[in-house]
């Protein structure tokens, strides 16, 4: 049956990982699989290293520990731009447990925070010192056996980072899809936008069509029109209990438009 091993040092934990092991961060995903008996592993690996919860700056980049909880993230003033995606995760109890690192591995309808990491073009570091880009991690996450310890990214320009979670239940419900956008501007024109969707595929995915169509355009109704037309390029949302593919394809450009045109935003 199941075996649980707890390590103090994350390097040791990683060294012990094999095909039958699963690393547990906050436990919000692993425990539900365990409770429902549908888990493809025999061994659960935990690590109690407090450094996994750290937040630091390194040459202008922000480095957050993979063990940082959503609640800690939402309360951290240095991470104010991440408050919206962090608060979008679960309720208060889930946010006290769910971690930034775990969210990178959370399949839809979870994983909205990872969408923000994708928009920020984050890089992750593993216990063994390996470094890889967020897209490479997301693409390989189903079989990823190493332990992510840190995530780093450049803070977004003020006013240039937006997040929106789409849910059918108010005030809070499960995510039908989410959108996150990094929108650097220069002289009133967008330069190098990154737009990421969750719920529009098996992992958070970039809307590369929209990104290209926004280049050099202002954030107004006319300026964003081509980006809306291109929003679904390369995205193929699934039918599931929460929404049909048709519904997601229909509402995704609508929410993208609202997000791009919104005037006030928290950050």
């Amino acid at each position: 049956m199941i075996k649980v091993d707890t390590y103090r040092a994350v390097a040791e934990a990683e060294a012990s990982m094999d095909g039958q092991s699963r690393y547990m961060g906050g436990g919000t995903l692993v425990m539900r699989d365990l409770n429902y008996g549908s888990y493809g592993f025999e061994r659960l690996v935990r690590c109690t290293d407090p450094r996994l919860n750290s937040v630091r700056r390194d040459r202008g980049r922000i480095v957050i520990g993979a063990g940082l909880t959503m609640a800690e993230c939402a309360e951290n003033r240095d991470l104010a731009f991440l408050a919206a995606p962090a608060m979008g995760v679960g309720g208060p109890a889930v946010r006290n447990m769910a971690t930034v690192g775990g969210n990178l591995f959370a399949p839809p309808p979870f994983g909205d925070f990872a969408t923000a990491m994708l928009a920020l073009d984050a890089r992750v570091r593993t216990a063994g010192g390996e470094e890889l880009g967020i897209e490479a991690l997301l693409a390989s996450r189903r079989t990823f056996r190493r332990i992510v310890t840190e995530i780093e990214f450049l803070p977004p320009p003020r006013g240039g980072f937006r997040f929106r979670k789409v849910s059918r239940v108010k005030p809070k419900g499960v995510s039908v899809l989410s959108i996150c956008a990094l929108l650097p501007q220069s002289g009133g024109r967008i330069r190098g936008a990154r737009i990421a969707f969750n719920g529009m595929g098996a992992t958070p995915l970039r809307a590369t069509g929209s990104e290209a169509a926004l280049e050099g355009r202002p954030l107004d109704r006319n300026g964003i029109a081509p980006a809306l037309d291109a929003a679904l390029q390369g995205l193929s949302p699934a039918d599931d209990e929460l929404a049909t593919s048709w519904y997601r394809r229909t509402v995704a450009p609508v929410y993208l438009r609202r997000m791009l045109l919104e005037r006030s935003h928290a950050y």
Binding site: T28, M31, N96
Partner: peptide, 24 residues
């Protein structure tokens, strides 16, 4: 629910709200 979605198993662990069903 045993999946952390309903909240009826909520407890405080060291003063913080957690869901007992998904706490090891």
């Amino acid at each position: 629910c045993a999946q952390g979605t309903c909240g009826t198993c909520s407890v405080l662990v060291d003063g913080k709200l957690q869901l007992a069903c998904i706490t090891l």
